[in-house]
Nucleic acid binder design. Structure first.
Lengths: 131, 131
DNA sequence: AGCGCCGATACCGTTGAAGTAACCGGGCAT
DNA sequence: ATGCCCGGTTACTTCAACGGTATCGGCGCT
């Protein structure tokens, strides 16, 4: 939530935005692959570079991130723009179609804030019962 | 919940409710396991029996359905009630927590109705480009 | 010459979800 | 007594996702 869309460069992504305490990995929802939802969150504020995306995504390996981005590009969720510069620069940006997923991510997050503790409590209770 | 344990049954589930033409399997969303969302849809109208659930779920194998139901029970999304009758009868019903997921499924379906053709078109266009 | 940066790709191993096939126990109809 | 039905379970296999490590190519820097 640190983004302010000023004219210059975007604020850097918070490397802890998917910190282990963030329950996003426990949510019973998935959008596409494991990382797709988090990539959308990272690109919500504007275009980002490959290496910029790696930091907050809990050190996702380049291979998996590359696969995820390619799948999303194939499905029209984001665009990939390579600038012929040095050092090389590649920017990923959400398409309008990709942005239509944001409300769903919001809904999933809202559900989790309200109900995920309930679900996890039920799970723990069940485990205690089994033992 | 107008359930009578011996009286009029609910209308049977449409065996084609997850027909191959139903794009639910193409949706880029998942709730829990592969089948969790469909189970919720099947139980939306009231409790159902094991064999009743098998029909519309495109012949999911008993093993996978059993695993799915057990995981959902563990997470407090549904209850399992076994009646000591003959023939044996087991009913699965959504809990209030399970019902909280229905609006999310609705949102996912609404997204798919609006945008999924767009996504699939982008995918096909990309494949044509690759070829 | 050697090193590092960026954006990957190749190769390989692990994991876990999902599917297949066979079977079970009790009751009941044939 | 045989087989069927219900609601599963068990054992085995398959498959895609995910992850780890290593490496590449072009360029600039020292």
């Amino acid at each position: 939530m640190t983004d302010s869309t000023d004219g210059a460069r975007l604020a850097p992504l918070d490397p802890d935005m998917f910190h282990p305490f963030c329950p996003s990995s426990e949510m019973p929802f998935r959008v596409g692959d494991k990382w797709t939802g988090m990539v959308i969150r990272c690109l919500e504020g504007g275009p980002r570079r490959f290496t910029e995306l790696r930091a907050p995504l809990r050190s996702v390996t380049p291979k998996v991130l590359s696969e995820t981005l390619r799948a999303m590009e194939r499905d029209g969720l984001l665009t990939r723009t390579a600038y012929d510069e040095n050092p090389p620069r590649v920017e990923y940006a959400l398409t309008p179609l990709g942005r239509t997923l944001i409300p769903l991510l919001d809904a999933a997050r809202a559900w989790s804030e309200t109900h995920l503790p309930h679900l996890l409590a039920a799970r723990r209770a069940h485990e205690r019962n089994a033992a």
